[in-house]
Computed example of a mutant assay.
Amino acid sequence: MRTWVLLIAALWSLVRVGPQRSSLLNKKGFVYGTVGHPVKIYVKLRQNSPFLICMDFGRASKETVDPTYLWIGPNEKALTGNNRISVTNTGQLMVKDFLEALSGLYTCTLSYKTIKAETQEETIIKKRYDFMIFVNPFAPGWKTACNVSVDCEDITNHNILQARDRIEEFFRSQANILSHHINRSVPAMHFVDHSFQVVRMDSCRPGFGKNEGLHSNCASCCVVCSPGTFSPDVDVTCQICISVHSYGAKSCP
């Protein structure tokens, strides 16, 4: 993310969701799949993912006969319910306490029957839904700065700019006090209005970076580095390293 920096660099990384997910995310926090198009989802570090629905929105509004659901995780193994993965009987999946290593492709295959009214002939239909889940980091203390209804980046920038204004006012007041109320032996202090400047810093935590090409619907997000890349410091991009096979690498073996 890009944020204002005042005196010391404060790194804030926060979650964002792209327009594709927004259109598929309903008020209850469910994300529907799309046949033929992976749905990208960005989850806060150590937070629960939304519920992923093994069905597209159109199919969900229709009667589905004898549905079965098969979820495959990033390790290409079938997913079953455990203390980290929640899978319901209706094909809903949620990943709990999300970490870098849990990023990747989550695939669900929906199987259901169609029955011809004339002949009562049954046909098995299969549809595949892909969800690409990526983790975003966030700075310690983000809960005290933000709440569910506001954008963490906006409120952080607002607070930093407010701090700048208060520091500027402090120096202006000190200059006035030294000029009029303090013994003349104290060195004079002069303050030029609007001379106190802030700069913008764009950075990500180690293991994270920005990639507008890969994450066009979340271009300003610091997203976990994909396999084949790494980020050893607070840079804004993940560097290429073909020997990296996991998400969130901080070094190149």
Rank of each mutant, 00 (worst) to 15 (best):
S111H: 06
E121T: 15
P253K: 14
F51I: 01
L110K: 02
G29W: 05
M1P: 08
G18W: 03
A175M: 10
I133R: 00
P137G: 12
P67C: 13
D202W: 04
S195L: 06
T109C: 02
L24W: 05
K96C: 01
P253M: 11
L70M: 02
T90C: 00
L14E: 06
H181F: 10
V5P: 06
I124M: 07
M132C: 09
C146Q: 06
V95Y: 00
L99M: 07
Q239M: 11
N136M: 06
V244E: 13
L99E: 14
C238G: 03
V43F: 06
V148K: 13
I41H: 00
I41D: 00
P187V: 03
F208Y: 14
N159C: 07
H180Y: 12
D97A: 09
A10Q: 10
V150D: 05
R59Q: 13
D235P: 00
Q92Y: 10
S246L: 13
V199L: 08
I53H: 05
Q162W: 05
E168F: 10
R59I: 11
G207S: 01
F191V: 15
Y106L: 00
S246V: 15
C225S: 07
V224R: 02
I72E: 02
D235S: 11
T237D: 02
G36E: 08
N211E: 06
G58M: 11
T80N: 05
G58V: 07
S22V: 08
L93R: 00
P19L: 04
S22E: 14
T3V: 08
L70S: 08
V5K: 12
V17W: 07
I155C: 02
L105K: 03
V223E: 07
V186T: 12
M55R: 02
T90S: 03
E63K: 14
P140D: 07
V224T: 13
E212H: 07
R166S: 07
V150H: 04
H194F: 09
F191M: 13
G36Y: 06
V31E: 02
N136G: 08
T109N: 11
F208V: 03
I155Q: 02
V198R: 04
R200C: 00
D165S: 15
H194S: 14
G207L: 01
G248Q: 03
R184D: 15
D193T: 14
D56H: 02
